[in-house]
């Protein structure tokens, strides 16, 4: 078991998410940075998609009530065990009574803590992922708080291990997202098509698991587009929408399933994990990707990591 001493800014229980339910208005949720989540589980010797803790921005303190091992991955948060610094992207053995503390996020937004064996949490619609707006998943569908006690499951597992050199991702306060046109791309005015890829945006304080409001050069749609109001249409994580004020919104893991603003860009699948590392204040840039390159980029990434993490794909 582990005991939460301090939930921090927002710590939730996540797995790979509940997929295929967007037609019911239910987003997939799941780890916002699926890649760091998978690495944390791999280090702990778990299946890549075992339930783990996702801590946004920092402040999480937990106590272990038995000897165990955990994998730590994602944003650097100056983690310590009993006041001793520990390294990010490593597996750490702890004893009964040891206390893990995360400070604040530096080069990203979310850290993942996977306990050997995985957390034992009841599933809702085939996933334990916490989705706060509907109060489902995790513990009563809410963020974790002091006093919560989380049981660990004891499924057969591999020995804990460390990530080989070259497999650790580089996180930064400047997130670069390769993108392709989304359905209303053609409705952008000409100047905005240029601005979009030249000047970086800043993620505003309105940045959470649902989406990130970006601040930067005003992005405008052509006159024709602004005159007709759009009928609500489906949305997916990684879509950049432009409301009338010209400050775009990037949809994340818990984002709405439908929306009424023009959709101009879609982040390629291989880069979707990076969305989870956008913190308030991060710089966000978009890079144009060629549509024929996107499947190749994905294939290359998947084959590189498949040898390491069984069953995982971006």
């Amino acid at each position: 078991m582990i005991e939460i001493l301090n939930g921090g800014t927002q710590t939730t229980i996540q797995d790979s998410g509940r997929h295929g339910l967007r037609h019911l208005g239910m987003p997939a949720s799941g780890a916002a940075d699926k890649f760091s989540f998978a690495l944390a589980n791999w280090m702990a010797g778990n299946r890549w998609d075992a339930p783990a803790l996702e801590c946004a921005l920092g402040g999480l303190h937990i106590r272990f009530t038995s000897d165990t091992t955990f994998g730590l991955a994602g944003a650097e948060m100056w983690a310590q065990v009993n006041g001793q610094n520990i390294k990010n992207f490593t597996a750490i053995s702890v004893h009964k009574g040891d206390i893990l503390t995360l400070s604040f996020a530096r080069d990203g937004c979310r850290a993942y803590i996977a306990i050997a064996g995985g957390l034992k949490i009841p599933e809702f619609m085939a996933s334990v992922s916490t989705y706060l707006p509907a109060k489902i998943g995790g513990i009563d569908g809410r963020a974790l708080k002091a006093g919560d006690k989380l049981p660990i499951s004891h499924r057969p597992r591999e020995m804990p291990r460390s990530i080989p050199k070259g497999f650790i991702p580089n996180l930064s306060r400047h997130v670069v997202l390769r993108s392709l046109p989304a359905p209303e791309w053609d409705g952008l005015d000409k100047a905005s098509r240029r601005h979009l890829f030249v000047s970086p945006f800043h993620a505003s304080s309105a940045t959470d698991r649902m989406g990130s409001r970006l601040r930067g050069d005003k992005i405008s749609m052509s006159k024709q587009m602004t005159e007709v109001s759009m009928t609500s249409s489906p949305l997916i994580p990684g879509t950049l929408q432009v409301p009338a004020d010209g400050q775009p919104i990037l949809a994340l893991a818990d984002g709405h399933c439908t929306g009424g603003y023009p959709r101009i860009l879609q982040v390629i699948r291989a880069d979707l994990w990076l969305l989870g590392q956008i913190a308030p204040g991060s710089q966000v840039s978009f890079r144009r990707c060629l549509s024929e390159d996107a499947p190749q980029i994905l294939k290359a990434r998947n084959s590189f990591y498949n040898g390491l993490i069984d069953g995982f794909s971006f």
Binding site: H19, G20, R22, H23, T231, S232, S233, P234, I236, C257, T258, R269, P295, L298, N302, S313
Partner: peptide
């Protein structure tokens, strides 16, 4: 992966693998 009907549109997300 997802088939999402709306008023006048339908989203089809496919499995790239």
């Amino acid at each position: 992966l997802e088939i999402v009907p709306a008023y006048d549109s339908l989203l089809c997300q496919f499995d790239m693998s």
